[in-house]
Amino acid sequence: MLQIIDLSSSYGRIQALRQVSLQVEEGEIVAIIGPNGAGKTTLLNTVCGLVRACGGEIRFQGQDITNMPTHRIVRLGVSQVPERRQVFDTLSVRENLLLGAYQRFRHERRSTIEADLQQVCELFPLLQDRLDEPAETLSGGMQQMLAIGRGLMARPKLLLLDEPSLGLAPLLVREIFRIILELRRQGTTVLLVEQNARAALRVADRGYVLETGHVTMSGTAAELARDEAIQRAYLGRSVSGNHGTRVGASEGGKEAGRR
């Protein structure tokens, strides 16, 4: 569905991505893990056309979308839930959600879009009661749900999630990952960028490790989770002192990546 071939991009003179290649197949959840500043967010932004690629190619459903304007990429069915949410804070929750479907108003009936809004509310029942309140009055966790809901309102074929668990309480982190699994069940393809490698690898089918702008490792999520180097670097677990495989997503968190 999404093919990235030898992609390079840079911010000014700092090269952020070096010949990154990766693939996302339809119906998959693919996780990109790696330390802070590895270029994970840049990668998603380059896919969306927010950052210019200076080399390589991005193909979505066979079509070359490299350096296409963002609004056209969105129209093709790629939706990004950005890092730190970027909700429209003085607009109401409902307006935020409807703007998520901005591209669809052109061809689709309002009733279909309203029905989707209802579906998003079922997925995030907490939002339902606060539809007419400004988004800035929501807690961080609920803003994250709003951001995901807004992303879903575009009915994306491919959903790009950037650090959805960043800064959230453990309980909410678990909730967010539950929703990611639910989305997959409904047929949405997800490309997930996470520092919370443990939680990400638990929901993902496959994963890539991005370090200083290039892919250093890739494989199925299970393979990656078993890999010793990854365990040391990202899962915060000494190889010998294995204290069970069922460690809640809540315990991972950002610290895991730094240890």
């Binding site: 609004h71 003085t90 703007l99 807004r150």
Partner: peptide
């Protein structure tokens, strides 16, 4: 609303497919 969205958060607006 799209115009207001641009005023509030340009990056967010672009990601919604607003030109």
């Amino acid at each position: 609303k799209a115009l207001r969205a641009c005023a509030i958060n340009k990056r967010g607006a672009r990601l919604m497919g607003i030109s």
